[in-house]
Design a protein around this nucleic acid. Structure first.
Length: 342
DNA sequence: TAGCCGAGGAGCGACGCATG
DNA sequence: CATGCGTCGCTCCTCGGCTA
């Protein structure tokens, strides 16, 4: 396997000799084997998807994104453990489950303290007519543009004393309908009250006109649990492909992952923010946590072996997580990925 | 008068490459 | 709640001018 695509691939750690190694960052705790196992699960899902995307991008003759798919393939391939913690290099790609989980957690930590102070948070969905692949990119541009116009308009209105102050968070999601072969980019928002949601929905309908957006397809509902709604919204934000839900027993076999559609969505969303806030800023954080750098003597280096679905110690045959993929996941990853161009 | 637009500087956040 | 950091595009904020 092409494991040496990076000449410097040393797991984000460097300057090691036989006796010591320099580790950067906080590392994640793996004294609890669950963490290592869940990392292994994310790794296999991500790696399989990355390979499928590489295949699809070959067929589609879109080469620019191939490198970033490979980066994701190699994400956390080489890791170092020391004192119960794991250190590695992250690819930070949207499709990477490992990296987007980190991003998700950061966002939740950042936004929850603000949103929990809102008086009556509402969950808003803004949708418009689904579109074909041909116009997907333009549609996504338009969708973001539409939101920008609405935000500007309402803000100006407020500035002139004619409307309420508009704020909230938004995330862009796009689903694929394999039957109709259509895409539907749409927004999920959390806003501080019902009136904000109503104002935004009204302007959204005005802008798209009756031909493209109908009132019944928009939502504006009270959030009963701010925390779970926030997690849902942020999950949408970074959820690019449907992570197989292994807990839903009956569903598994019908699930398909459309790599071609995913590739199209990724391309169309490139350069756009998936998650953003509007109308407010996060409170300034004064403390800038300095990144931790340490030299350690006692460490282990591991390399991910796709066949083992685990990281193997470079100096022995020991494996790190001892993770075994559940049969349903195996089946899904081996049989249910559709690599047809969509 | 309401809505739209652009300028323009500061700051922020998403993204993704690279290496102390 | 896991690397660091540069880049780029966006938001925020405000003013002022234009048009229907």
């Amino acid at each position: 396997m092409d494991d040496e695509i990076y000449t410097l691939a040393q797991s984000g750690t460097k300057n090691y000799t036989e006796h010591s190694i320099i580790l950067i960052g906080k590392g994640s705790d793996i004294t609890n084997n669950k963490t290592a196992k869940s990392k292994a699960q994310k790794k296999i899902i991500t790696q399989t998807m990355a390979l499928s995307l590489v295949d699809v991008s070959k067929e589609n003759r879109v080469y620019e994104c191939r490198q970033s798919y490979w980066n994701t393939y190699h994400c956390q391939n080489r890791i170092t453990t020391s004192d119960g913690k794991i250190y590695g290099r992250y690819c930070k790609n949207r499709i990477c489950t490992i990296c987007s989980n980190i991003r998700k957690a950061e966002l939740i930590n950042k936004y929850y303290p603000v949103i929990k102070t809102w008086e009556d948070p509402h969950f808003v969905t803004l949708t418009a007519k689904a579109c074909s692949k041909r116009v997907l990119k333009r549609r996504i541009d338009k969708t973001i543009e539409a939101f920008k116009i609405i935000n500007q308009r309402l803000r100006k209105r407020h500035q002139r004393g004619k409307g309420i102050k508009i704020m909230g968070i938004r995330s862009l999601e796009c689903n694929y309908n394999p039957v109709k072969k259509t895409y539907n980019p749409h927004f999920h928002l959390i806003v501080p009250n019902k009136e904000t949601g109503e104002a935004i929905v009204e302007e959204w309908l005005n802008l798209w006109t009756y031909k493209y957006a109908r009132k019944y397809a928009q939502k504006n509902e009270r959030c009963y649990s701010v925390e779970s709604t926030l997690i849902e919204v942020i999950k949408y934000g970074s959820k690019i492909f449907t992570e197989p839900d292994l807990k839903q027993k009956s569903k598994g076999l019908g699930t398909k992952i459309y790599a071609g559609a995913l590739h199209n969505i990724l391309n169309a969303m490139k350069g756009h923010r998936i998650f953003d806030r509007f109308g407010f800023n996060l409170p300034k954080t004064s403390e800038t946590s300095l990144s931790k750098v340490q030299t350690v003597i006692d460490f282990d280096k591991w390399v991910y072996i796709p066949k083992l679905r685990d990281w193997r110690n470079v100096n022995s045959d020991e494996v790190l997580s001892k993770y075994v993929a559940p049969p349903k996941l195996q089946y899904l990853l081996e049989q249910c990925i559709d690599k047809e161009a969509c």
